[in-house]
């Protein structure tokens, strides 16, 4: 508690550009993922209208906005998780490395390997901890059997779980705490070497200590992986992300460097949302 509170204070006084996510340079012309006038809806109703956003390689982007503003719908469209949902409608484009994700030549399974997702509620599979880490590697044929042990260890070390679980790799993932389960899901997602990870309120069900673990991890992984993070935790958006997109009333209301969105937004709605007067 104390730890996260003190960091909150720091974030209030120090501009976000000097935060940990600015330890490396981004190339603003190297765009890994991009939406072009993306309009999304279900049945007769439109959820989001004409969203154009760019995600530079290695960046962390926060999506903020009130409940029901379409953040989840937007996020799930980025790796076509909505495609199977009844009544789902879309117009416009999502480009991954300049190619449409809806092109008929795209292999859906391959797309999702490249653009992974982490959910609000940790959802480990009902198989051993080790199998959870390896399931994607096996399904995509990314490694040989001989390397499985090493891969398991590397990934669990990467997410900081190794010490806690090294003696029960064949045990059930449901014996882990909520935070540890989410870290395991992160390891599982990282195992297939994604280029982009979509995170839908990944820490909203976690305690402050676990939140910090997950945040540190995202910051550490970011140069290699591009993150798009939906969050209701404004302080988190502020300390974690390079850029922030504010969704409001069915539109992308404002988008820009996180520091600007939080200190000098150009829209009144944004100002009111980040200062806590609406939400």
């Amino acid at each position: 508690m104390f730890e996260s509170a003190s960091r909150g204070e720091v974030a209030d006084t120090v501009p976000a550009e000097k935060g940990r996510s600015e330890l490396y340079e981004l190339d603003p012309s190297d765009i890994v993922l991009k939406t072009k006038s993306l309009t999304l809806g279900f049945g007769g109703s439109t959820v989001l209208d004409g969203v154009s956003l760019e995600f530079p390689r290695g960046s962390i982007t926060s999506l903020i906005g009130p409940s029901g503003s379409g953040k989840t719908t937007f996020l799930r469209s980025l790796n076509r998780m909505n495609d199977g949902i009844r009544g789902y409608r879309r117009q416009g484009e999502v480009l991954l490395d300049s190619a449409s994700i809806w092109d008929s030549a795209v292999n859906l399974l391959q797309l999702r390997r490249r653009v992974g997702m982490l959910f609000q509620r940790a959802n480990p599979f009902p198989m051993s901890i080790r199998e959870n880490v390896l399931v994607g590697v096996k399904a995509h044929g990314l490694a040989k059997r001989n390397d499985f042990d090493e891969i398991t260890e590397t990934l669990l070390k990467e997410v900081g779980l190794w010490k806690a679980v090294s003696d029960r790799l064949n045990g059930s993932p449901f014996s882990l705490s909520g935070g540890q389960q989410q870290l395991l899901c992160l390891a599982r997602a990282l195992a297939v070497r994604p280029e982009v990870l979509l995170l839908d309120e990944p820490t909203s069900a976690l305690d402050p200590f676990s939140i910090e673990l997950v945040e540190n991890l995202i910051a550490k992984l970011a140069p290699k992986v591009t993150f798009v993070v939906v969050t209701h935790n404004l302080a988190q958006a502020r300390r974690l992300s390079h850029a922030t997109a504010f969704f409001f009333q069915g539109r992308l209301a404002e988008y820009g460097p996180t520091n600007k969105i939080f200190t000098a937004p150009s829209q009144l709605d944004t100002q009111r949302y980040v200062s806590g007067s609406i939400g």
């Binding site: 992974g116 399931v135 297939v192």
Partner: peptide, 10 residues
């Protein structure tokens, strides 16, 4: 479970 599997490209 199935959502997690889909998101992993299974």
């Amino acid at each position: 479970y199935s959502e997690g599997g889909e998101a992993l490209g299974l």
